[in-house]
């Protein structure tokens, strides 16, 4: 059985997504959580590029990919800002200690 580049890329997408979600569920450190989120986003970007290449819309998909990267950088920056502020105010970066709001 010949493994085509497409299959490999799809496997990478799935692998990165799985890794990211797994990380989101088990990591306690907020900074690492943000990194996990970024990993999933990168998997999605890769997926969109592959999708565009598959049907000759590479131009479109590359534009989309770049925009996504920009937008998600903004999200990551905001998230990091929150994390820093939380560290300052509460002295912790452990997400499990952030559980005052419940019920």
């Amino acid at each position: 059985m010949i493994i085509s580049p497409l299959t490999i890329s799809l496997l990478v997408v799935c692998g990165l997504t799985g890794l990211g979600f797994y990380g989101l569920l088990v990591t306690r450190n907020m900074i690492k959580l943000i990194m996990m989120l970024q990993i999933i986003v990168k998997a999605a970007v890769l997926g969109i590029v592959i999708a565009g290449q598959g049907n000759g819309q590479l131009n479109l998909s590359q534009n989309v990919a770049i925009t996504i990267i920009v937008v998600d950088t903004i999200v990551a920056v905001v998230a990091l800002a929150f994390a820093i502020q939380i560290r300052r105010q509460m002295g912790t970066l452990d997400i499990r200690e952030l559980a005052s709001l419940r019920g």
Binding site: T17, L24, M30, L33, L37, I40, V41, A44, V45, G47, I48, I68, D72, V75, V78, A79, F82, A83, Q85, I86, Q89, M90, L98, S100, L101
Partner: peptide
């Protein structure tokens, strides 16, 4: 801050699914 951060993470995880 707690509310904001948790909101951000959950919402961002959702919006990635939209990208897929």
């Amino acid at each position: 801050l707690e509310a904001g951060f948790k909101y951000l993470m959950q919402s961002a995880a959702g919006s990635v699914l939209v990208l897929f």
